[in-house]
């Protein structure tokens, strides 16, 4: 059980490293898929913290993240312009 905080830290680090892809792009699709990866990692981090600190309320936060990740994705594919837009 003492392992769980380090597991969460590790997940956070992988998510933060994923930011490099958001910066580099080169296309909008690359940036968006990196954002999606970070969103999924965050859900995982919330589950780990929730079970480690015995705070089931965090599962509700994870639920909200899960549904809103889908929305920002839909908003992106429906409205983003084509081309190598910055």
């Amino acid at each position: 059980m003492i392992l769980l905080p380090y597991l969460a830290t590790f997940l956070l680090l992988t998510a933060l490293v994923g930011l490099i892809r958001v910066m580099r792009g080169p296309t909008t699709a690359d940036r968006m898929l990196a954002a999606q990866l970070i969103g999924t990692s965050t859900v995982a981090i919330l589950l780990v913290i929730g079970v480690a600190t015995e705070a089931p309320a965090l599962f509700d936060v994870a639920l909200v993240f899960a549904i809103l990740a889908a929305i920002s994705l839909a908003a992106f594919v429906a409205t983003a312009r084509s081309g190598h837009q910055p």
Binding site: L19, V22, M23, G25, T28, R31, M32, A34, A35, I38, S72, A80, Q85, P86
Partner: peptide
């Protein structure tokens, strides 16, 4: 702008 928005979400 797009990059800024994604970073803001992050």
């Amino acid at each position: 702008a797009f990059q800024m928005i994604v970073m803001f979400m992050m």
